[in-house]
Design a protein around this nucleic acid. Structure first.
Lengths: 144, 144
DNA sequence: TTTGCTGCAAATGCTTTGCATGTAG
DNA sequence: CTACATGCAAAGCATTTGCAGCAAA
């Protein structure tokens, strides 16, 4: 039950929070994993939920603070959110169709860490995004 | 002469463009290498230049299109610009003082490339930003 | 009941644009 | 002279916030 996650995060269990968590968790489909606030809002409307956009932003921000979701800034001024599933990973974004794929590479992580240490930094976080073009059928239809 | 760079980029040589290029190039000091539009604008005012903020944005955007500068989105909603000096590099940003350091790592580049290819992407670009805390004297005074 | 949540509308911060004027080539 | 640049003010977007009403515990 998702209510547990909310309680554990010290948040009251409310409809908006449950529904948003559901939407983030429900779309197991990888292409739909990364949602903007607006995307999430639209999904809520489609589900006939009467939840304001401001609440969506508030809830997503709280989820982020609670460690339930991650916020990413892919290019285009709009932030996207994704449910945390434990393991860290980086992203590849298709410039044509917006498709987002994930990958994890321990070697890259290690090298990053070394580079930052060499400069006298203790690492708190990092963001690695590769932009490219995917060679998939159906590509380019989402951006249009 | 910097006018050459402008002409080569197909841009008319005007005072705003020259001054902005100067500011970006002039501050060889590494800490001052990454400037927001607002930062740049303030420098212009300090130099008694009567140039509007809108022009700063326009010029920086043109410079980016011409390949003269790169735009980065470090966390915080504000874009920063940096003069291109040929070699690609990544960034480490101090969360306390905002200091930005650069590093280049061919191994990371190669691994990124492989990861993206494995997913069926041809790479166009990428952004790697490490956030951390620098252990420097004077740290934490810039953010305040 | 009490504390914390929500919706709405207004405010914010960064960036872009329309338009009349100015200027490089 | 002509095309492109600039300045200013207004518009645009994504996101945040103030506040009165609501709801979870």
């Amino acid at each position: 039950m998702e209510s547990q996650d909310l309680r554990r995060a010290g948040l009251k269990v409310t409809t908006p929070r449950l529904k948003i968590l559901e939407i983030l968790a429900g779309s197991g489909i990888e292409v739909l994993r990364h949602l903007s606030a607006e995307d999430t809002y639209k999904r809520l409307l489609e589900s006939n939920e009467d939840i304001g956009l401001a609440t969506v932003y508030r809830v997503l921000t709280q989820f982020e603070a609670a460690g339930l979701v991650s916020r990413h800034h892919f290019e285009g001024g709009t932030a996207v959110f994704e449910l945390n599933r434990g393991e860290h990973h980086d992203h590849v974004v298709c410039l044509d169709c917006g498709r987002v794929e994930e990958f994890a590479d321990a070697d890259i992580e290690a090298l990053q860490g070394k580079a930052a240490e060499r400069l006298g930094f203790s690492i708190a976080d990092h963001s690695l995004i590769v932009y490219g073009h995917c060679q998939r059928t159906g590509c380019a239809y989402r951006k249009a």
